[in-house]
Write a protein that binds this DNA or RNA. Structure first.
Lengths: 335, 335
DNA sequence: TGCTCGAGTGTGAGCGGTCACAATTGTGCC
DNA sequence: GGCACAATTGTGACCGCTCACACTCGAGCA
């Protein structure tokens, strides 16, 4: 009993007067077990406060029932929401989740993080680190477990899943054009990020489709701080009436810079963001932006990954279409 | 070789012409191993792409080298930053991290989450769910592993670690009083949250110490949305010149409401927030707030937890003192 | 009655590591 | 050369579970 060790399947067996294998059968819901036996075993389990030892199970089964998450910048709203959803979805499916974060300054951390996950013998990996170099590293490492990525690499990956960033960016751009804007800048995310590139593409496509001339997008780093500085730079020129920012944080920085220069949003400049973080509705002015459902993305990624692990067909293919949320930061140009 | 199974310690041993135990010694950096032997083994390990099986190791050692994180609202900035830091710190210490999220609507999820962690045989738990009911549940469950909490329960917990919320709140309040404000409201967080309560206490203490009369704090839910509605309510009365909000998001909502009513921040109302989220510097006006170092908190919590697990003495006791960051949202009252 | 068959249960061998202990080899010194 | 002793390596059991297979027993049927 209180010999220091946690009770094992054999302790339960002894007390219930059955074999260890019978206990194992009860634990795994084996069909052919007499109800009375099952009840007795369950009783002892309860009495002993028995908990199956996961390591032992993983070892003998050869499956860890764990999936890994490879994530960059997991403190940001989008990734964090997705991770939370992934964890819930995985738990519901009986899987455990292990997260490894990438240090964005250290390229070798990709290998380290993957090794970390592999040494956990994860059965699959969800990648929320939508940077080209991460994908390249993943290919080189020739991982022997399936993995899905939360962002399409643009090529026709069967294991990619994403909010249709291009469609979202076109929605935002179309909105500005429809309002009458012609001189529109795009503040993009870092070059290296898949979704930054996708949004930039969407922007350029829509501008092209409507025959609006464009200037080269500015490459930012997602932070409000960058948006602010970019805004100050842009105001030196002031040959634009609207800016489409690749995320809400940079949009916030832009607005700050514009305000500070004594101008008004949206009267002088219209701003559209991307993501619809919960705060966006309370920016001043409330931000017009493109909403993407990070939680749904997380849930679907788990479904897709598990279907690959278990070699079943996934039930929800296709990408998620984001939605334009019009608020106060956009209006017709002054004239 | 390619018999489907991953190579084991014995495969390595065979190829290197040594015993499995020698391989094990190499893996664990045992001191008395001849350099030449070690080199040979490492060579084979490399050749075979051998990775130790964690489940087997955990089983035979009886230790999982895993710590659990119990977290509520892990998508928010503060918790998410701490979690990221915890993961890094744990990884550096050779530990794995497993996160379980609480569903805030379902009280029974506490038990479920703890069971989830325990079934992983975690060696310790970091609790980032600073709600009274979580602590109560934890006590009832009589967990047999050490755990630390990222927020002090107010009582003298040896296993609590925290930013000194009271000191932070006093800093914020003092700042407002020093500016000349006397009619100051406090928009608090949810009653149930330890840190909300601590900040409220700090506010009341400082007000008391300076003989400034106070009104009852308003209990919010941390969201910008709530701050906005609270702001609209408050403006019906308008018998205040400053508001101390228990976090930055609610402060943002307040500002929104105040602006919408045609008033100015800080001219008509000064606002102080709490947390210093990265966006706070770019609110309009930039938010005066109290900065707390979530990453440091995460790192220290791991250090504390590991010291409990390994029964060593922790090296960095005491709480972290937050810092007041003065920006544009506060000024002397109109008169 | 004797046989087959399947439901229910038991037996023993792994899974891939670590641990305790035994065995072997090497070194210094008389 | 022979011995004590340390350095290095090997042997077998065991961690807690699942797997493959064997066994028992009663029902159904010729």
């Amino acid at each position: 009993m209180s010999n220091g060790r946690a009770p094992s399947i054999r302790d339960v067996a002894r007390l219930a007067g059955v074999s260890h294998q019978t206990v194992s059968r009860v634990l795994n819901n084996h069909p052919s077990i007499r109800d009375s036996t099952k009840a007795r075993v369950l009783e002892v389990i309860e009495e002993l406060q028995y908990r199956p030892n996961r390591a032992a199970r993983a070892l003998s089964r050869g499956r860890s029932r764990t999936i890994g998450v490879l994530s960059a910048s997991s403190a940001e709203y989008g990734p964090a929401s997705s991770i939370a959803a992934i964890q819930d979805a995985a738990r519901n499916a009986g899987y455990f989740v292990n997260t490894a974060n990438l240090d964005r300054r250290d390229p070798s951390s990709i290998t380290a993080a993957v090794n970390h996950l592999m040494s956990q013998s994860v059965e699959g990996i969800v990648v929320i680190a939508p940077q080209v170099r991460v994908f390249n590293a993943l290919k080189l490492l020739s991982i022997d477990v399936p993995y899905v990525t939360l962002q399409s690499t643009g090529s026709l990956d069967t294991n990619a899943l994403s909010v249709d960033q291009i469609a979202g960016a076109r929605l935002a751009t179309r909105h500005l054009i429809d309002l009458g804007h012609r001189d529109i800048y795009h503040l993009a995310g870092p070059q290296d990020w898949i979704e930054a590139e996708a949004r930039m593409h969407g922007f350029l496509e829509e501008m092209g489709a409507r025959d609006v001339p464009t200037t080269a997008p500015i490459l930012g780093d997602w932070t409000a701080e960058f948006g602010y500085h970019a805004g100050r730079e842009l105001l030196q020129v002031r040959d634009f009436t609207a800016i489409f920012s690749s995320n809400d944080q940079m949009a916030l920085g832009l607005i700050h810079a514009i305000r500070e220069a004594g101008l008004d949003v949206p009267r002088d400049v219209s701003i559209v963001g991307f993501d619809d973080i919960p705060e966006a509705a309370h920016f001043w002015p409330p931000l017009t932006t493109v909403r993407q459902d990070f939680s749904e993305l997380g849930r679907r990624s788990v479904a897709l990954l598990l279907s690959q692990i278990n070699e079943t067909t996934p039930d929800n293919p296709g990408s998620i279409i984001p939605e334009l949320i019009v608020r106060g930061s956009t209006s017709r140009p002054a004239f």
